[in-house]
Amino acid sequence: MSTPTRTGRNVSMTVNGEAVDRHVDPRRTLSDFLRKDCGATGVHVGCEHGVCGACTVLLDGRTARSCCTLAVQAEGSEITTVEGLADGGELHPLQEAFWKHHGLQCGFCTPGILLTVTELLAGNPDPTDDEIREGISGNICRCTGYQFIVDAVRDAAEILRGTGTGTGTGTGTDPTR
């Protein structure tokens, strides 16, 4: 969208499994690129200076702050945003756990936290509560007080390890289920 004030550049990358080729202004941040040029509005921009973590995406399988990355820096990479987590109409177990444990309120930080936790659990499938807290400490949530996020992550970890039904703690019966 932005007028290429200098030499525009072509960038190619894969976003949630789809090949994307665009001509971009080199100053365009990856977060703006994903949101505005690729329609991935689940990438949320909370601070644009790399502190809040809302814009976190997976870049070649590792988390990156898309606000602190220029689109041109992501040339040739594979990007996963929150839109790429669910499998068709099925929520990812992590999303299910956040739903069940009330791990979100306004939901603005949630996409970044889900992707951060995806990486955390890939490297540490059975984290302690302290490790979970440290793992999400680069993501500001202004609503929840974090506890139900920690509960959700612990429960999701159990499900993803395949060692339990993920009953976890912190929830009661759910009459809607």
Partner: peptide, 15 residues
């Protein structure tokens, strides 16, 4: 009742 929230699926999926 501790019901799950109706708004969550769209918030969890970027929708």
């Amino acid at each position: 009742a501790r019901t799950r929230r109706k708004e969550d699926p769209r918030l969890l999926t970027g929708r």
